[in-house]
Amino acid sequence: MVSGHMLVAFTFLALASFVLASDPSPLQDFCVAIDEPKDAVFVNGKFCKDPMLAKADDFFLKGLNKPGNTSNQLGSMVTPANVVQIPGLNTLGISLVRIDYAPYGLNPPHTHPRATEILQVVEGSLYVGFVTSNPENRLITKVLYEGDAFVFPVGLIHFQFNIGKTPAVAFAALSSQNPGVITIAKAVFGSNPPISDDVLAKAFQVDKKVVDRLQAQFWMDIN
């Protein structure tokens, strides 16, 4: 017969297994429930090829040695290597980007809602940083040189700025096959349709004319 202590232990372990269980991290911004399967789409990954049909090119990408075009208003360009470019990354929870920076080029404040990022500088020097969450909103920054690496925790606003007079290059790994990118300025002032200028004026404590001017700008996407 199982003793009372053993029974309690088994019960605790059974409950703990339910407590520790969790849904997989989402790989899309949202997933609206639907009852009709014919109108549904597959989420959290892509449909999988028969493993026997997999080939080397499914796991391969060339061209990351080529600089991205930094001739834009931000002076930077991100070249992704995620599941879109490398189908074999599907379900593996990792991706890569190359980031090129013109002199004084900026990868503007942004977040990755589904990934932590680790970035290594391979050429030039970068001023990088991220902001912790409320209520501290503490800015943590560092100047990086060739060979230096820095981590941006998942979901936190972060940036990189080339402080040198020459181009800079960095590579970053992200802990998702589809990390997502939310560029703060573009999301706030370049949404479609626009967020009400009454809302933004109150949020930023500025005159509505300032908001209108910002919303009228072209907010480009370098990712």
Rank of each mutant, 00 (worst) to 15 (best):
C48S: 12
Q217E: 14
V97K: 01
L92A: 09
C31I: 12
S196N: 14
S3Y: 11
S25E: 14
V84M: 11
K209Y: 09
V211R: 03
K46F: 11
L139R: 07
I99C: 02
M220T: 10
D29V: 08
I34F: 11
K165I: 00
L27F: 13
K208R: 15
D221L: 05
L144E: 10
L96T: 12
A172T: 14
S175F: 04
L144W: 05
K55R: 14
Q217K: 13
A54K: 14
D35I: 04
A168M: 08
I94M: 12
T166C: 00
V181F: 07
I182N: 11
I182Q: 13
N82P: 00
D58Q: 06
L200P: 09
T91F: 13
S3M: 10
K49N: 05
L13F: 14
G45F: 01
L64P: 03
V188R: 08
L13C: 09
F159W: 12
F42V: 01
P67D: 15
P37D: 08
S125E: 15
D207K: 12
V151I: 15
F130C: 02
V122F: 06
N134F: 14
R213C: 01
T91D: 14
I163G: 03
S176L: 07
K49L: 09
V211C: 10
L200M: 01
V131D: 05
P37G: 06
S191Y: 02
V2Q: 15
D198I: 12
N137Y: 15
I99P: 01
L64A: 13
Q28A: 11
V211H: 02
D23R: 14
P108I: 01
G93S: 08
D57I: 13
P103G: 10
N72S: 01
A185T: 01
G124M: 03
P108S: 02
L156P: 07
E36N: 14
E36Q: 13
G93C: 07
L156N: 03
D100R: 07
G190P: 03
V154G: 13
S25K: 15
P113M: 11
G88H: 04
K49F: 07
N162E: 08
S3G: 15
L174A: 10
L119E: 05
F150G: 00
V210G: 03
K202I: 00
V32T: 13
Q177Y: 11
F130A: 01
C48F: 01
